[in-house]
Nucleic acid binder design. Sequence first.
DNA 1: GTTAGCACTCTCGTCTGATGAGTGCTAACG
DNA 2: CGTTAGCACTCATCAGACGAGAGTGCTAAC
Lengths: 343, 343
Amino acid sequence: MDQLDERQRTVFCAVVEEHIRAAEPVGSEHPAVRERLGVSPATIRNTMAALEEMGLLTHPHTSAGRIPTDAGYRLYVDMFQEAEALSAAERQAIRRRLETSAEDPSAAAGQAARVLAFVTQYLSVVASPGLQHQTFRSLHLVPLGERRAIAVIATDSGGLQARMIDLPEGIGPDDLEQISQAITHRLQGCRLADLTHERLEQIVGEASWHHRLLAEVKTWLGRELARGGHPRIVMEGTRHLLREPEFRRPDAATQLLEALEEESVLADAMAAAPEQGLWISIGAENRREELRGCSLVMATYRAGPQVVGTVGIVGPTRMRYRRALAAVRYVADRLTETLKAFE
Amino acid sequence: MDQLDERQRTVFCAVVEEHIRAAEPVGSEHPAVRERLGVSPATIRNTMAALEEMGLLTHPHTSAGRIPTDAGYRLYVDMFQEAEALSAAERQAIRRRLETSAEDPSAAAGQAARVLAFVTQYLSVVASPGLQHQTFRSLHLVPLGERRAIAVIATDSGGLQARMIDLPEGIGPDDLEQISQAITHRLQGCRLADLTHERLEQIVGEASWHHRLLAEVKTWLGRELARGGHPRIVMEGTRHLLREPEFRRPDAATQLLEALEEESVLADAMAAAPEQGLWISIGAENRREELRGCSLVMATYRAGPQVVGTVGIVGPTRMRYRRALAAVRYVADRLTETLKAFE
DNA sequence: GTTAGCACTCTCGTCTGATGAGTGCTAACG
DNA sequence: CGTTAGCACTCATCAGACGAGAGTGCTAAC
């Protein structure tokens, strides 16, 4: 869209930014637009008409100002990939909030969602694909009383999954130790996604240990993986959505919330994200119809080389994209940094 | 409030139930009211006026029907402690959803919230007080590579908390084993709430093991406890709130959501609950002003003899109390049953 | 190419009156 | 004396009218 001349660009940006700021159609007489150029409203009107012709702006009705179309926003974000800078205080708030994640990666998603909602004032979403995308590191069976044990799976990205299991009769601590080591040995380095039930059967089953116990561990692993299949999604900051003028109409809000609370919608939408870098989906660009009224800004985060999750925000198409970009990128980067410890 | 005579009772109940059903003021000519008595609207009007006198009903405006006051709802729920029965299908859905919790108590809260929101069609809340209210059972340090270990705390109610810790140089598996046993031995049976930082210092500190490691374990325990202090709250089903007519006014919804997303509000409100049994808080009865427009129905659940959490729902004061009671009680009971395994 | 002028369009807030639901009061009734 | 019919009254709600204001597009002059 470089076919915009100098003036068109200026007018276009002024309209987008003013509309993002004020949430209202921007007229040709609007100071924000006029200030940037030395020309009269009439001239601006001509330019606006041209921009509308190109499909970048539109009219809610005859006598209203212009608002950007989805295509307009798209052009805008493509023009301004360089994001707005976060203030030092904001950066610090984010870092502080995520520090604790280093100690407890399982809480990282929640923390990230919280701080992102706070900084952006939009609804934030963090999807952590659970075990699915992680690499098996070790299994430990720790005896706990006579007939019970704690089983812990550790993954390379610092993930831990603990649960209790019942023991068949006649299994001693030594047996547990032996089984732990054997399973650890056989599964180490295995991507958990590759551990189908059959595979598990094959790898583990060929040994002839105490069968009942093995069966129990096996079903657990299987179930844990099944659950890891659809990522756990944490949402935070629903309240911010309701404050946006575009969602003040009660059923607009209801519809959106219903969509968001159904996990598959967000999961779908986020599945379209590339593995690397920032990713923006504006209005009609969204796969799921329910999200056509909003925009998503997303980024993946990694533990070492492995992508382990997605952070992002959901807001109206009239979103403060530059700020959102900055915040999402910063949070994703810090998360990645934090999880480096477990590389 | 037994000073209600037969007719007053009938009219009162009819008004409450009809209003709960239809969400609109109930007039004296309303079939639902008239059907229950053989009398004319004029007579009902007199009765209604009397009930209004007593503070049980009120008028939105002169020419509107009657709606119950908070006091009216209170009387109503007190009269009908016997809850509506859940359908077999509903009971089964709840049981099924909670079965998996037996294997993974940490996911129990989430599951319970989900199923409760689904069954009641209100917003549901589950607060699991975390470690705070549980009893220490054992600590295990499992070596993981050279300089790292997994630390797992187990509690009597089946709770597990796992995290990774860095090891100081020169600590072998035997040391870890020894330290685990020593700490387990000293803290066993201790209510975690009683483990203040000083106490921890005192109990653990008197021994002369490897200091750096101990320090690490200690700060972890301390931090974990501090976090356990304010319970983790899971909310599910925000969408249901927006569907209620009383929250269709955009800022009513916004205000309520803002309150609910601030954890302290719910935590406060729930702190007023008794340890045992069902508990209902209607409108103005709520401690926190932000919740004056809604009602809560709550119940605690236990792991063995120990109360470990609260489940409940939030809805308009015009709530289907009898149904809500049944659902909340059933979920709490099933949760308690499920967690019995860890007694 | 730019701008002033102007007629035109359309939304929005306010006002109006009509409608209708539901009341409280009074007087008659069994 | 409790119950009921009748009736005047109140008040929210809704549709339609109206004016104000915002912003447009067009035209003609600069």
